[in-house]
Nucleic acid binder design. Structure first.
Lengths: 233, 233
DNA sequence: AAGGTAAGTGTATTATTTACACATACAGAG
DNA sequence: CTCTGTATGTGTAAATAATACACTTACCTT
């Protein structure tokens, strides 16, 4: 208790996005502001230090918005990462020096995961010029810091909580077909599901309600559209 | 990014203990080192600031040992608590001033929950003179800071993870009867279970193995003893 | 009008969960 | 030694949930 035990605290957001093309994660590119050339620009999860007067959930929302212009998505804390050396790796030094007052200071981060429907993102936020991009989960390369670990852990948590929490609907357009819902489950759980049985289960979910509306413009029998109506209780 | 965004980080341990008498939680009493009398000594969860060179899990183990002499228990991170005002309450000021360099500094805490078998704690660590005590979950009063919230959240997490992780065995003596195991489940889940069905399920758990040993000194049919043998795989 | 495409639907089979009652082994009392 | 009290230990039938599986329908295109 004698010396100053202060450190930095950040939040990192693992935002999953889904469209018919598969499951993506939102990454940003570090601005290559380092003077020397030998450090290539890494991708990383959107994250930054929290402000001294904001709560954690609030910080996650703010940071995500500042870095990607994405607003109001479902963000849920899933784990804190506190390895004393998690930001000490050589590869990460140059960038830290360019953006932080105290680049050597230890940083503990709180991980959040979030979910968005890519269909509802039309058109994409202009600010994506800023370096944010949706990367297919299969194609994520090495990230800055320990962000690969954080991403893996977030995905594990997503799988576990998919059925218990009502998460899946955040990943779909507001109006969706049961086939879309099923495809989403299949991507996340990584296994094929039986169409009939799946639909039987959905019928039990009282918060998935059919709309008076059908798919249009498809060259097959148009599907019934559904929406998610969370009941407060 | 302009000003210093350092803050304090602590760990708090919610250690559950179980004996035939019920489910308890480990609390410590703040030493009443305040000069003025009008601040009564609060109970709190064992917790303290982390050191700058230790990991979070490591910090949890150390802090728990320093405050209660309890060593090597299963401790699992469950949530970070970061309300900017969580240590700003009037009731907590005096104590903070007596133990911290920067009593006004914001503290974010990472919650861990842990489990011990009270039967295996015979006799109790001498150091419990230091003010640690097992308090029946029903009888926990108001705690310092936001520790009631942390406790509730830990208990929720315990319930959820009881079956998926192999947690329950940490709460029992090394040799236990199936009736003890069942009673534990009933306390945590807060519902009665059917004896036969419960035993059927346990038979499926390959890591619960019968010993060549029976209960002695009981005035009824002695129960088979079991132990928990985690298989590495 | 015909062909291509995904939507939508029911039933039989199997596995899992639930409900339920009596014989057994020991300790203590008489 | 016998009797009584007490918690242990065990099986089966009924209900519920999970799985496997194939054909008709509605729309679009050519």
């Amino acid at each position: 208790m004698s010396q100053n035990q202060s450190l930095h605290l950040s939040v990192d957001c693992v935002v999953f996005g889904y469209d018919d093309d598969g499951l993506k994660v939102l990454l940003i590119n570090q601005k290559d502001s380092s003077p020397d050339q030998n450090s290539s620009p890494w991708s990383q999860l959107p994250g930054d230090l929290i402000l001294l007067d904001e709560g954690l959930d609030q910080a996650a929302q703010r940071v995500l918005f500042e870095l990607t212009q994405i607003n109001g998505v479902y963000l849920k804390q899933f784990m804190a990462f506190g390895d004393p050396n998690r930001v000490k790796d050589l590869k990460d030094r140059a960038w830290l020096q360019s953006v932080r007052n105290l680049p050597e200071q230890r940083v503990v981060t709180v991980g959040y995961y979030g979910l968005v429907s890519l269909q509802d993102f039309t058109p994409r936020p202009a600010s994506f010029a800023g370096g944010a991009q949706w990367v297919d989960l299969q194609e994520v390369g090495p990230l800055a810091f320990d962000h690969n670990i954080i991403l893996d852990q977030a995905f594990e948590t997503l799988k576990e909580q998919l059925e218990s929490q009502h998460i899946s609907f955040e990943l779909l357009p507001k109006k969706f077909t049961l086939t879309q819902l099923q495809a989403l489950y299949e991507v996340i759980l990584d296994k094929k599901l039986d169409k009939r049985n799946f639909r039987k289960n959905v019928k039990k979910m009282t918060h998935v309600v059919p709309l008076d509306e059908k798919q249009t413009g498809v060259m097959h029998k148009p599907a019934q559209l559904f929406s998610y109506e969370p009941r407060k209780n």
